[in-house]
Design a protein around this nucleic acid. Structure first.
Lengths: 242, 242
DNA sequence: GTGTTACAAAAGATGCTACCTATCTGATCC
DNA sequence: GGATCAGATAGGTAGCATCTTTTGTAACAC
């Protein structure tokens, strides 16, 4: 009897290796969107049956959600969706889920405010600590930005803009700032793609990027910071945060 | 034979419910400290035997570490420690592990730079969006700071300082800033306790806290931001970041 | 009759063993 | 040097035992 029913497992296995990922994303999005509201109770059995997965897998997935403080689990009670205030909102998975939900506007505005806070300090850090290769690459990207911006090629402009901001975050010598690079990319991409924040590169923005690059190149932290601040002030105004 | 060895499980079970946590922390600290260097390969079997745990538990724990981008796992290869550049350095668990390691100084300096970036913007946000209860409580905390600071009671001063900065982050209306509150608490606590950054509340700092509270109370975002900046400038100087 | 404590039962996570499968890697063979 | 094959190892499945917490109920006191 102990080995008679083993065969059934093989069938469900056909779904490929990313089963874990799929269920985790599905559950994560349901929570991020509010479909599974805070306080809502789940059980492992429920998850197992809903997604047709094994208990082990359901446990693994819940373990990950618990480690993100998105749910907590207690014996006899089950698995409970946490209040959003407890979530690890810096986890890239959670950011992704929130951006995929109806509430994406809130996530964008939080991320933008975070950029406003972090990027000027990152620019100052880069001016102090970037390698010479990074400094010159930054200047090259600023030149590209002008070129594509004036030519009106939004696609190439976006690519250069992403590269510029990523490089800055990665060369400022603070690994926490560096970890924000993919989120900044997400914001920049979406404001071009989804038109949530229409963007025509203004002469001021182009000039400010060049000033940041120049200040970083010459090691002038204060100017780098204020110039970056100028870039983000436009963003701030465009989003109506002020 | 299939059920003969079931009894052995019960014995190992006596260790309490937090077995998971214990092994996770142990492994996390080993990685954060560099004892398990990037590129180092592990296997589930290894983990199982080293900690005397079951495969299920070992898998759960690795799943969590993988979700933090601290390791990645591939079939036939095993579980590989990631480069620090990929880590989710905003995960509170990871911050805790890094603060527990020999490299805690790096973590403190990253966190301090993050504070310098975020808190002024948070102060501005609070001036715009805090509730009236929050505004008045902030003013009360500023008064407490002066009282305990002048009385020389470092312990009570620390408690009020933590409460002040936490409240500010929690009332600024940005849930990402809010999520940083426990990390700020950690930094404030340690600079008092471990004397890593000796701190005697200066008259300027006391005054700046009051100015932030007053600016938030009156809804003056710009003043709140610059006053908070002044608080952090002292921190910056004290840490020799400039 | 009402409230309070004590105990029993059940629900559900926590942990374990055992198995099979898919996939990658490295060695072997031509 | 390229194809083939064997083995190692995570990914996935099943089922069982245990421990904790809740809840329901019974007994008892007031």
């Amino acid at each position: 009897m102990s080995t008679a029913t083993q065969g059934s497992g093989a069938m469900a296995n056909a779904a490929g290796p990313a089963l874990h990922q799929k269920v985790l994303d599905s559950l994560g999005e349901a929570i991020a969107s509010g479909e599974l509201a805070p306080g809502r109770r789940l059980t492992l059995d429920e998850i197992q049956q809903k997604y047709g997965i094994s208990r082990t897998l359901a446990r693994d997935i819940m373990q990950v959600l618990e480690s993100m403080n998105v749910v907590y689990s207690r014996r006899r009670v089950g698995i409970v969706v946490q209040e959003p205030a407890h979530w690890n909102v810096f986890d890239p998975k959670l950011v992704r889920w929130r951006l995929a939900s109806e509430r994406r506007a809130e996530q964008y505005s939080s991320l933008t405010e975070l950029r406003i806070a972090v990027e000027p300090i990152a620019a100052a850090g880069a001016a102090r600590r970037a390698s010479s290769a990074e400094r010159s690459r930054l200047a090259g990207l600023a030149a590209e930005l002008r070129q594509y911006g004036e030519a009106g090629d939004l696609e190439l402009f976006l690519a250069a803009d992403i590269a510029f901001h990523r490089l800055l975050l990665n060369s400022c010598g603070n690994e926490m700032f560096s970890a924000l690079d993919s989120m900044v990319e997400e914001v920049l991409t979406s404001r071009t793609r989804q038109g949530l924040m229409p963007f025509h590169p203004s002469p001021e923005a182009l000039r400010a990027h060049e000033e940041v690059a120049a200040a970083v190149a010459s090691g002038d932290a204060r100017t780098a910071e204020t110039s970056m601040h100028r870039i983000l002030n436009e963003v701030r105004n465009a989003m109506g945060l002020e």
